[in-house]
Design a protein around this nucleic acid. Structure first.
Lengths: 239, 239
DNA sequence: CGAGGCCTTGAACGTCGTCAAGTGGAGTGG
DNA sequence: CCACTCCACTTGACGACGTTCAAGGCCTCG
């Protein structure tokens, strides 16, 4: 089983022994965050980049009224705040949703690594481009689709991304998807999310429980979410 | 007046004579696109990157029903599809909204340039990170705000970004913002955009005409759009 | 056993979308 | 100069999707 942090990074650029070793050497001893703790804060000038080793986190923005919009999910292997290498201050917040482990890399170390191994830099760049693709997809999701499709699409995305890192077990995945969280991610109200989940469950498409999601009918879930399985350049089969 | 294409790129990395020259040398003779023509197409494997020299374009995604979601605006100096360097096929479409000039760079030339001048590569990377910040902002806009704030926010963004490239003239800017386009950008219906613009005009905040926007009261426009003037790391004053 | 989350359900309201008809300006041709 | 056309904008009426308010149920944890 390769290191999560390498798994995603080397999708396009097969990193050499040397490159992988350099990257792994730069990683700090993992730091644990509890559910609700902030891994990166809006407005702060970061000195480190962070890689999520395991757990589950969300990028989000808060407005003055205390309202929240979730911008994307951070899954094991994902970089949290590479942006901070080039853009400061950080413009959103990353919050651990469950207990999570994070490895940090000093900016200076990362710059040195990239200087010596440009391909590692390209892999990081590519990673941020995939993040951007996710943001685009979310804009489409929130802007064009109704509640039923929005929620379905979100569950599809999570399925495919978790599949890519081996965290799917027979069409089930273990994630604390509270209805509140889904509401903030889809731009809907909790109550409407609840109604939508009820419908998806009644239709025997998918069951969302407080700590686990069970996909009963992947094809109909994709159809409901107008989900393109080629999403995110992943070649993962659903099963 | 510096070259538009350099203006944006060298915001953080003051490019040296050498670096700038290398970049400019890689640019092709500008190619003209008419309004409605596609500069980059969803699904295609690009061989070139494109820089918008002047004009106005939109990134957008189309769904099966022919519906469209605009994902962001492409203004003079902006890169169109750097993504294609690292991610293929291209996952959305870029369409010229008015007659526009575009310079192309062969991927191979760009890779060579970046290889010789890493800082140019970092500048490109930074540019794609700002694009990502825009997508995040749009997700917030569409997901959290009502029609009034959404439209206002969009107008604020355009104002600040055009200001940064010197295309604002005494609180006016010349852009073909049809109500249809605004609708696709905000996830609203044309009719509701119309109602919203009427209200903004009646309140003497901003007037949007088919080919020009006049900002009467910048402060109230920001307030209406819950717009943070520090948006996009721009230090541009409104006036 | 009690308290506090989160989920669930119902009812009323409102924002925004749809449908339909009408207005106005720009370009074209008589 | 005046129809005529086309297209975008405008306005009104109506309905739907989704929100808000309110109350009740369930599970977890102290």
């Amino acid at each position: 089983m390769p290191h999560y942090a390498l798994l995603k990074l080397s999708q396009k650029f097969e990193l050499s022994q040397d490159e992988s070793a350099g990257y792994l050497a730069a990683l700090s001893i993992p730091k644990a965050y509890q559910a609700g703790e902030e891994i990166a804060r809006q407005g702060e000038d970061a000195t480190h980049c962070a890689v999520l080793l395991d757990g589950f986190a969300c990028r989000s923005r808060h407005d003055v009224g205390g309202d929240e919009q979730i911008l994307s999910f951070v899954l094991p292997g994902d970089m949290c705040n590479v942006e901070s290498l080039l853009l400061n201050p950080f413009d959103h917040t990353i919050t651990a949703q469950i207990e999570s482990r994070v490895a940090l890399i000093k900016h200076a170390d990362l710059w040195r690594l990239i200087g010596h191994h440009p391909r590692v830099g390209y892999a990081f760049w590519r990673d941020t481009l995939i993040d951007a693709a996710i943001y685009r997809e979310w804009a489409v999701n929130i802007g064009m689709r109704n509640a039923y499709a929005r929620v379905s699409h979100l569950l599809c995305e999570l399925y495919v991304r978790l599949k890519a890192v081996g965290l799917i077990n027979a069409f089930n995945y273990a994630l604390p998807l509270s209805q509140q969280l889904l509401a903030h991610a889809t731009g809907l109200s909790v109550i409407h999310v609840n109604r939508t989940l009820k419908r998806l469950k009644d239709e025997a498409i998918v069951t969302v429980q407080p700590r686990a999601v069970r996909v009963h009918d992947w094809d109909r879930l994709c159809a409901a979410g107008e989900f393109d399985p080629a999403y995110l350049y992943s070649k993962a089969d659903p099963a």
